[in-house]
Design a protein around this nucleic acid. Structure first.
Lengths: 213, 213
DNA sequence: ATTAATTTATATGGATACATATATCAACTA
DNA sequence: TAGTTGATATATGTATCCATATAAATTAAT
């Protein structure tokens, strides 16, 4: 039997990522205990975990709130994300196996299919698959781990209604170029192409923040 | 008043980093509760935190043990550390302020002083100061945070008696070159010099692991 | 009427009591 | 003698209880 707190962690993460819990929202242990029909103990453990994870923050005796990232913090986060994504591309170039190549290609096809019919949620999913495929191809588990954590953090700020006028097409082209560089084992190009790709996302941050209310 | 679990976390970290608790050692909640004269509750919170931090690991109903990193995991960790340290150098080159420059210089002097008299613990401390100064100069708080966490992890494996025959001198020269590149605002060189510097450390891993018993 | 102080309520931090799963050891059978 | 099964013990997981700090509200004083 899985621990109750583990389920709670997943559930709360979902609620944060889905936007149900918005940055700044307060979490009260007693309320959560009633909602999830468990005692306060596993609730407290889950909250602690999420605090350590950086998704919540606490002030002494003031309970936990969903952490709010300001513009600089988000920018810093994106910079690190861009660097590590670029690193993954470099390593993938150096260590590419046939099977990983296939997986990257498949995810790229998904991106293309979604882009053609302008299926935005579909593209978002395919996009994650594409990046995930590259992470795996890096063969560095620590890196893969870090990136999935960072991605989770970024996703909190990504799901709000955002206009992607023509951005799907551009993103797809960038993906294609990145893949080509990896397949050509050109780690240097793959690295910088991915970094640029990520930084373009990051450049949209200010408008995201404004949308945040 | 600080929370009891916070103090426990620091204490347990110290014991892990100091080698008192070795990888594989089991931590029993009741024992710790007696040792620290608190109830099991803060003990459990501390353990959870350390598990999330990656310093401990748990299996269902089997309690917590000090996490053991195998050769590949350590290698993966070093690769990421090297990349992020390099990134810090690049950013420091781009954003260097006069005050940060002074701090880097000061830490470099500490390294030199320690190296001249072959003061190994002194050099280790100066080394941390040097890297820390560069982290700060990157002006990226997220990066600084990640690096300090990674450094803590690496330190667990670093404190065992390791021979540094002539390594102090070499390390110092590398530090000097890195600083020069940063001061010349040559981010590209600073990045790769630091990456190489870190990877040299990483290359000593196999012997470290053998020393681990 | 406004502000400050005291009291009261409530939510977090910590201790303890209780439930349950796993491991160890012993006994019995093949 | 070796292996399997069952009972007991122990450590983890959960619930609840108690203490205390903080916040809110009410009252009193200027």
């Amino acid at each position: 039997m899985a621990r109750a707190s583990d389920k709670l962690i997943e559930q709360l993460k979902q609620e944060i990522f889905s936007g149900l819990l918005k940055p700044g929202d307060q979490l009260e242990e007693a309320d959560l205990a009633v909602r999830f029909n468990v005692s306060r103990t596993p609730i407290r453990e889950a909250i602690r975990s999420l605090v350590d994870n950086g998704l919540l923050e606490t002030r002494s005796r003031k309970g936990a709130i969903v952490r709010v990232l300001n513009a600089k913090e988000l920018n810093d986060l994106f910079e690190v994300a861009a660097e590590l994504e670029g690193m993954a591309c470099r390593l993938a170039s150096e260590r590419l196996t046939q099977s990983n190549k296939k997986i990257i290609k498949a995810s790229l096809d998904l991106c293309q299919a979604a882009a053609q019919v302008e299926d935005i949620p579909g593209y978002a999913e395919a996009n994650l698959a594409f990046h995930g495929a590259i992470h795996e191809a890096s063969e560095n588990d620590w890196l893969t781990d870090q990136l999935s954590q960072i991605q989770a953090r970024i996703n909190v700020y990504r799901l709000m209604p955002y206009e992607i006028v023509g951005r799907l097409e551009k993103s797809l082209v960038e993906h294609q170029k990145i893949s080509e560089a990896i397949f050509a084992k050109d780690g240097l190009s793959a690295n910088s192409l991915m970094r640029d790709h990520m930084m373009l996302q990051g450049a949209r941050l200010p408008s995201l923040l404004r949308a945040l209310v």
